[in-house]
Design a protein around this nucleic acid. Structure first.
Length: 618
RNA sequence: GGCCCAGUGGCGAAGUUGGUUAUCGCGCCGCCCUGUCACGGCGGAGGUCACGGGUUCGAGUCCCGUUUGGGUCGCCA
């Protein structure tokens, strides 16, 4: 059935054939996307990664197999390019030409695929992932994967021109239990000992700074054994970089220029690959904006206060308003109670939703509750001017009116409030803001809005651990002027840490690192490390820092997220060739799986009975 | 670990308060068609309604459990 390639050379890809080739002989190879057999004449759409071209055969003397080709078979065609004899197809790049074949080779006949190889299909994700190699044939995914490759090349071009060195760091490293759960790899030669796969090359890149490679970057695979999300895979790729003898502004500057470069270059690539014009246009607009004005900065505190999030979506307003002052003397216990407990009372104004039905408000309440709010007090100002306040009986007419004024409430507005700890209020109002912004159509999905979020807190209190934890990581440099409060008020110390945020998604983050040993020692002490444990875990780094460490700082992007956002994808899985599903398994390869008893023995591992039974069952 | 959503021929969906032979579109197979490109026409095959149990005279439909996938909270320094 299958024929060989012997004596044939592909001359170009399908989409690369242009009118210039009219009259010339070409050899094309690809997949049968569609076969339209009209009886006396057969049209075959031949597809490869570059696009589709039409092959036309008339019955007189043509290979009869043209009329009965199986879709998705791999074929080779030699023939002559001609101007179309019939109507042109304006939807196709090769729509004015076609190929009249001389010879056909069926390189491999395809079975009927389990789903259609087309854009816009609505097939179950698990089926698509089981046959990922077929799903990847769809033009939509082809475009995204090729866009990813081209973007990585742009990143390399830019960083290389800026003097960054691409240096690889190992994947088998020591485990550092701070932060995310590690993926562990058992050692055969050291029974009972384990490597960890890197969560990021953090410590290694800092050591490269000690070695004098003052500008480093790496497209680095990272691993975190945590639950998945639409924008989170257990195995993902970072664009990781570190610079010596620089401060925060230097890092932000070079990265702003990187993003300017990328957004400027991307649209042409996307046009070439056939992306949606609106999306490309959105990126062009963004490039123009940040090319002229750079990328704005917002402090972590402002981001939290105004948007309830450390990754604010700036594509729309609906800012959070603090009304603590306005309600501190009212009769509503929920408000006053929260204030007495050291919390805050804040609200958002959903313009135009004042007539929202009660059921929908209940749904919003559920959203607020997911984020820890105990309820959702609201004032609905109906379009006829009548006011429905869910806590009216605790308020005087005057107090309610003042509250409405403070919220800039007008007829037809819905005012939603949260009264709780700062954290809960931010989380719930921030989530409501996003939900309502979407509902009100305030978010333009072809718009791209960057922002640098700066001045993160150095530490974050953990109830679970009952201690302060590093918000970024334990090597993050505090602001000098805040450092004196490290004992008296550790929570108020700000860090020289920064995130780059795009449309409400954290694209990347970084910090200036501590290069002074007294600060580092104190930091580890505050984090609850005994000198012994610190030495055990980071001893190599602390020692290295004793031999002349340059001041250094860096940043790492989530490459998958970056590609996801710029390609207009809803899920990170669309821009990763072989992604994993929610429970971190691979539906195509069937990983993870059980292994031979022999392999376990070599690794000095034993599976406990209970898990063994589960393994046998599956 | 919690919560929410979904699973009906190969694919996507419909299926009413539980009621005869489970419906439609795409795909697939056969025949016809010389300018199609979402080709068209005629005909056909293809279903343990995710799995297990229960309620009922009767379950795709109701209940319980399981499972698979998605979203999300926790988690992700």
């Amino acid at each position: 059935m299958a024929e060989s390639l012997k004596g044939l050379k592909r001359t170009m890809r399908c989409g690369e054939v242009t009118e210039e080739y009219i009259g010339k002989k070409v050899t094309l190879m690809g997949w049968v996307a569609k076969c339209r057999n009209k009886g006396g004449i057969v049209f075959v759409d031949l597809r490869d990664r570059s696009g589709i071209i039409q092959i036309v055969t008339e019955s007189e003397g043509a290979d009869p197999r043209w009329g009965s080709l199986k879709t998705e078979s791999a074929i080779a065609v030699t023939g002559t390019v001609e101007k179309r004899g019939g109507a042109v197809n304006p939807n196709l790049r090769t729509g004015t030409i076609e190929v009249i074949p001389e010879s056909l080779r069926i390189l491999s006949t395809a079975q009927t695929p389990p789903f259609l190889i087309q854009d816009g299909i609505d097939t179950r994700e698990d089926l698509r992932l089981k046959y990922r190699y077929l799903d990847l044939r769809r033009p939509e995914l082809q475009r995204k994967i090729m866009f990813r490759s081209r973007t990585v090349q742009l990143i390399r071009d830019f960083l290389s021109a800026e003097g960054f060195l691409d240096i690889e760091t190992p994947s088998l490293i020591g485990s550092t239990p701070e932060g995310a759960r590690d993926y562990l790899v058992p050692s055969r030669v050291h029974p009972g000992n384990f490597y960890a796969l890197p969560q990021s090359p953090q410590l290694l890149k800092q050591l490269l700074m000690c070695s004098g490679f003052d500008r480093y970057y790496q497209i680095a695979r990272c691993f975190r054994d945590e639950d998945l999300r639409a924008d989170r895979q257990p195995e993902f790729t970072q664009v990781d970089m570190e610079l010596s003898f620089v401060d925060q502004d230097d890092v932000i500057d070079v990265n702003t220029r990187l993003l300017q470069y990328l957004t400027k270059k991307m649209p042409d690539i996307m046009d070439e690959l056939g992306f949606d014009e609106k999306l490309t246009c959105g990126i062009r607009k963004c490039a123009e904006e940040i090319g002229k004005n750079g990328i704005g900065r917002i402090t972590w505190q402002d981001a939290m206060d105004l948007y309830g999030s450390d990754k604010p979506d700036l594509r729309f307003g609906m800012q959070i308003v603090d009304v603590s002052e306005n309600v501190k003397d009212c009769g509503f216990g929920v408000f006053t109670g929260a204030l007495e407990a050291g919390g805050v009372v804040r609200g958002i104004n959903a313009k135009g939703l004042g007539d929202m039905p009660r059921k929908r408000i209940d749904k919003l309440t559920e959203t607020a509750k997911t984020y820890g709010a105990k309820g959702l007090p609201y004032i609905a100002i109906h379009s006829d001017g009548s006011v429905k306040c869910s806590f009216a009986k605790f308020m005087t007419e005057e107090q309610t009116q003042k509250l409405i004024e403070a919220m800039n409430g007008e007829n037809g507005d819905l005012l939603l409030f949260a009264a709780d700890s700062f954290r809960v209020v931010c989380a719930s109002l921030g989530a409501l803001r996003l939900e309502l912004g979407e509902e009100l159509g305030l978010i333009d999905h072809n718009e791209f809005r960057f922002v640098w979020v700066v001045d993160f807190p150095l530490l974050e209190w953990s109830d679970e651990e009952n201690r302060f934890m590093a918000m970024h990581h334990p090597f993050t440099m505090p602001y000098e002027e805040d450092w004196e409060r490290i004992d008296s008020d550790p929570g108020s110390v700000r860090a020289q840490a920064y995130d780059i945020v795009l449309n409400g998604t954290e694209l990347g983050g970084g910090s200036v690192r501590i290069h002074m040993d007294d600060v580092q020692e104190k930091m580890l002490e505050v984090l609850g490390f005994t000198p012994e444990r610190a030495n055990e875990q980071f001893g190599f780094l602390l020692t290295a820092f004793k031999y002349g460490v340059p001041p250094h700082a860096g940043l790492a992007y989530g490459l998958d997220r970056m590609i996801m956002l710029f390609s207009g994808s809803d899920s990170i899985r669309d821009v990763i060739a072989f992604p994993k599903v929610k429970d971190a398994s691979d539906l195509m390869m069937g990983a993870p799986s059980t292994v031979d008893e022999k392999q376990l023995k070599e690794l000095s591992l034993a599976i406990t009975k209970e898990e063994d039974e589960t393994a046998v069952q599956s």
